[in-house]
């Protein structure tokens, strides 16, 4: 077993275990903290896949912004008694069964195809090549400039909508 494989197995185990904690803990603040561990594990997986830009963006955007806004929302919507009740719906048995069926089918089909079993070797290009190509592709009209513009419009809409929803109706502004 190469060191890289051992690292992958460790990180995958940590990610899956913390994901299990995320969906099953009763206190939702702890669930958010385990989400942060999961996101960090996914960032390490991105780094193993040599998508270094996305590893950094995952830490910066997901952990540095989304997880913190989730924690703020949890703190702002706390009820005194809501951490003591059962946090799972009544339908959890059926959902668990269906999810297990889906996952087992998926994994069994995955291990048999030839394409899927190719070994991923480290890529040969190094340095800034992939990021430069990514940047140029995002702004190229024959490339992906349209999705880029649409994504920024989506963010603008989210920004304006968020401010509007959270605004005090008396006319003051609540950031």
């Amino acid at each position: 077993m190469t060191p890289l494989q051992i690292v992958f197995i460790l990180v995958a185990l940590v990610t899956i275990v913390s994901a299990l904690f995320v969906v099953s803990l009763r206190k939702i603040f702890h669930a958010a903290l385990w989400l942060i561990v999961t996101l960090m594990g996914v960032a390490i997986i991105f780094a193993l896949l040599e998508a270094s830009f996305f590893a950094a963006v995952q830490i910066l955007v997901y952990i540095g912004a989304i997880a913190i806004i989730l924690i703020f929302a949890i703190m702002l919507t706390r009820n005194i008694m809501s951490d003591e009740e059962v946090q799972i719906n009544r339908s959890w048995g059926i959902v668990l069964f269906l999810v297990l069926v889906f996952t087992v089918i998926f994994i069994s089909q995955l291990s048999s195809s030839d394409v899927i079993n190719t070994i991923l070797i480290p890529l040969e290009f190094q340095g800034q090549e992939s990021i430069i190509a990514f940047g140029e592709g995002l702004l190229d009209p024959a490339g992906y400039a349209l999705p880029f513009e649409l994504a920024s419009l989506l963010l603008l809409g989210a920004l304006v909508g968020g401010v509007y929803i959270a605004m005090d109706k008396k006319g003051g502004e609540n950031k």
Binding site: T2, L4, Q5, F8, A12, T15, I16, A19, L20, V22, V23, T38, V42, I45, L48, L49, E85, V86, Q87, I88, N89, S91, W92, V95, L96, V99, L100, F102, T103, F106, I107, L110, S111, V115, I116, N117, T118, I119, L120, I121, P122
Partner: peptide, 26 residues
Amino acid sequence: MIPLSWYLILAAVLFGIGMFGAISRK
């Protein structure tokens, strides 16, 4: 070196766990 299938299995398991949480949390 890590086969592609390992990554896909990890993604499938995470997706399943997320689906369970999304449907059955209050």
